[in-house]
């Protein structure tokens, strides 16, 4: 089965190799934080999860527009893959964030703009997936789920910029100047790794979807005799 060794599996394997290195450095080599202590190490999965989730949904926006523009099933499949992987990453993001919040802020959750817009992002894109499963006819499903995805995307820049526009409990983005240089390396390694793993997962999910869409499109098979068991 040479078919199985496609480019995306190499991307995935590379991502897994880098995540092992990045996590090792993040947990055992990088220093603890002055005030947060070891808890700060959650950053090395939390920030990469956030970045890759936001990039997934940005890709979803592009794929949704391309799907409407070209009417090609391939884009519909890519869009679905992007939404599903983005939702998985956002769900993980919220749980990691909640754990980090309990340790530093003292609460599991608060209706702060960053947390609220992130939860809304997860709910909106889950809604698009739900919409997809409700529409039977392929063309209508592709059209309306792409439109829903484009509308849901409005929340994605909000998740990123809300902490700069409004007051929040969540801190604003850090930069290399506000982060100890020894902490930057594991953060960057895991950011690249999460992105590669996300691309890998989207590619696999899109192939599953494309196969499903093509099977759906194929002429009805001859009715089979009902097997008696």
């Amino acid at each position: 089965m040479i078919e199985r060794l496609k480019w995306h599996h190499f991307v995935g394997l590379l991502g897994l190799a880098i995540v092992v290195a990045g996590t090792w450095i993040g947990l055992f080599v990088a220093p603890a934080e002055r005030h947060m202590g070891d808890v700060m190490r959650i950053m090395y999965v939390h920030v990469p999860s956030a970045w890759s989730a936001l990039l997934c949904f940005t890709f979803v926006f592009v794929a949704a527009v391309a799907s409407l523009w070209t009417s090609r099933k391939r884009w519909d499949a890519y869009m679905t893959g992007g939404i599903e992987v983005g939702c998985v990453l956002t769900a993980l993001l919220l749980v990691q964030g909640s754990i980090w919040a309990r340790a530093t802020w003292g609460v599991w959750w608060d209706w702060d703009v960053r947390l609220t817009t992130s939860l809304v992002m997860l709910l909106l894109f889950c809604g698009v997936l739900a919409l997809r499963s409700f529409i039977e006819e392929a063309n209508r499903r592709a059209t309306w789920s792409a439109i829903a995805a484009i509308v849901a995307f409005v929340d994605v820049p909000l998740v990123y910029f809300c902490v700069r526009w409004w007051r929040s409990l969540h801190q604003i983005q850090s930069s290399p100047e506000t982060v100890n240089s020894a902490m930057v390396l594991p953060l960057r390694l895991n950011a690249v790794a999460f992105l590669l793993i996300a691309i890998w997962m989207i590619a696999i999910r899109a192939r599953i979807e494309l196969a499903r869409l093509q099977a759906e499109d194929a002429p009805e098979p001859e009715p089979l005799a009902i097997e008696e068991r």
């Binding site: 996590t23 947990l27 603890a32 002055r34 005030h35 947060m36 202590g37 070891d38 808890v39 700060m40 190490r41 959650i42 999965v45 939390h46 749980v95 990691q96 754990i99 980090w100 309990r102 340790a103 530093t104």
Partner: peptide, 14 residues
């Protein structure tokens, strides 16, 4: 002002 014993949170999140 400093969090001590934060590993349980780290292990949970990872």
């Amino acid at each position: 002002g400093v969090i001590a014993g934060g590993w349980s949170y780290v292990i949970a999140a990872y």
